[in-house]
């Protein structure tokens, strides 16, 4: 029975992945939220297409490495996702990534895939928290986001080294 369930969930994950990829193609490109750090970069930590399909595997692998082996140096941490994909609001604050219409939530809602990460994980960047678990990018104070950050538009990750 367990096997069937595992198979079923694998299948649904695969389908969801395909759906996401299709949706992205149909819409012709980017879904990063304007005003997020991601909007200023050419690509995600891996090629964008790869990330669209496999980000859950990447995060899951990293999660086991971090929890059991204490490895926090890699670029694949969930904290990194949040750091980069959270956008600013006009008031100068940060919009949580699981808020409606934000990067994580919008796509997961579209693909109708549950998102359990944020039951436990913080939805806003660490704001320079001490001892924060990822090689954090520049603290927010140093690079205020939101208005004024250009939306580059080129997201397909062409030519980005794997």
């Amino acid at each position: 029975m367990a096997k069937a369930v595992v198979l079923g969930s694998l299948l649904s994950v695969g389908l969801a992945g395909a759906l996401v990829a299709l949706a992205a193609q149909a819409a012709g490109g980017s879904y990063v939220v304007p005003g997020s750090q991601a909007a200023t970069l050419d690509s995600c930590v891996e090629q964008t297409d790869f990330m669209r399909r496999n980000h859950m595997e990447v995060i899951k692998h990293q999660r086991d490495e971090t929890v059991h082996n204490g490895i926090r140096s890699t670029k694949h941490s969930l904290a990194g996702c949040v750091e980069c994909h959270a956008s600013g609001d006009p008031a100068g604050g940060v919009v949580p990534v699981d808020r409606k219409g934000q990067f994580c939530q919008a796509c997961h809602a579209f693909a109708a895939v549950g998102m359990n990460c944020f039951d436990c994980h913080a939805t806003v960047p660490s704001q320079g928290e001490q001892g924060q678990g990822s090689p954090s990018r520049s603290p927010l104070a140093a690079s205020p986001r939101g208005a004024g950050v250009a939306f580059t538009g080129q997201r397909s990750g062409e030519g980005y080294p794997q």
Binding site: A79, V82, D119, C120, H121, A122, P125, S126, E129, Q130, G131, Q132, G133, S134
Partner: peptide, 9 residues
């Protein structure tokens, strides 16, 4: 939650 200490229900 804090980024360094994820925790949930």
């Amino acid at each position: 939650q804090l980024t360094r200490a994820p925790r949930g229900k």
